[in-house]
Nucleic acid binder design. Sequence first.
DNA 1: ATAAACCCTAGAGCTTACTCCAGACTCAAG
DNA 2: CTTGAGTCTGGAGTAAGCTCTAGGGTTTAT
Lengths: 140, 140
Amino acid sequence: MKKANAFMQIGEVAQRTETSIDTIRFYEKSGLIPKPERTDSGYRKYTEETIRRVQFIKRSQELGFSLKEIADLLSLRVDPKTTCRDVKKRSEVKIYDIEKKIRTLQKIKRALSRVAATCKGKGPTSECPILEVLEGNEKK
Amino acid sequence: MKKANAFMQIGEVAQRTETSIDTIRFYEKSGLIPKPERTDSGYRKYTEETIRRVQFIKRSQELGFSLKEIADLLSLRVDPKTTCRDVKKRSEVKIYDIEKKIRTLQKIKRALSRVAATCKGKGPTSECPILEVLEGNEKK
DNA sequence: ATAAACCCTAGAGCTTACTCCAGACTCAAG
DNA sequence: CTTGAGTCTGGAGTAAGCTCTAGGGTTTAT
């Protein structure tokens, strides 16, 4: 039978998420991860849930979301005062944003594929199609 | 016959790209856009090419690329000392990164779709599947 | 019982990517 | 020929997101 309270301390969270201890504490201050319980001596006690949160935060950042936007995404669950209708609307807006990001990434990818294909592997570069491909003007 | 030298000045570039004049000059200082020609009195003279560059920079930023990474992407064309083989290799690495970004965005999107679908529009929120969906551990 | 390896707080400092002056020149319109 | 909008340079200031330091307490192994 697995031990019920397998708490870990901040160092382990940092290691497993490949962040720093300072960053974890910074996320706590910023409200991105909830204030954890403490041991009698004041050490923070974390669970697996925290690992998942931190990983979510890091990945979302790599995708161009600010910490504020990430807080938004995460709040799509925590606040019991928001109605479902509300959450639904907000998710749909986010979904739209994300689809736009995906489309732009696909354009860049196609442009890069073209770069790679054009280069047969010999001689110097002169022109590349990256800029041309991105001219379609999606309104923000 | 179209006029050959339809130059614009910095204000127009700023307006059309929805950035500020200061930002354009900042990009120049940072090497993201080439130093433009000047009028006799010292005003910068730009072409359409600049518009495309600035737009490329802005979009790439929204996708989580730093200015340094963007400089990298753009340099996939300008430096005549790099061989095609080299450019090809670098493009392929970038393509891989971009594919990873797209996959993660798709995961977030699916999670959000689930949020939206689960909410039938009534009552308060309690749980959401955003965190669960992102557990697959792609190595950076 | 003491060293090594943890953890704590508060606050200063750093990097990135702008953003905003001050003080001066340029240019088009009236 | 003056006024107002636009531009110039150099440098200081700002916000986000960490990162580091000082000075101290805790835990574990020997």
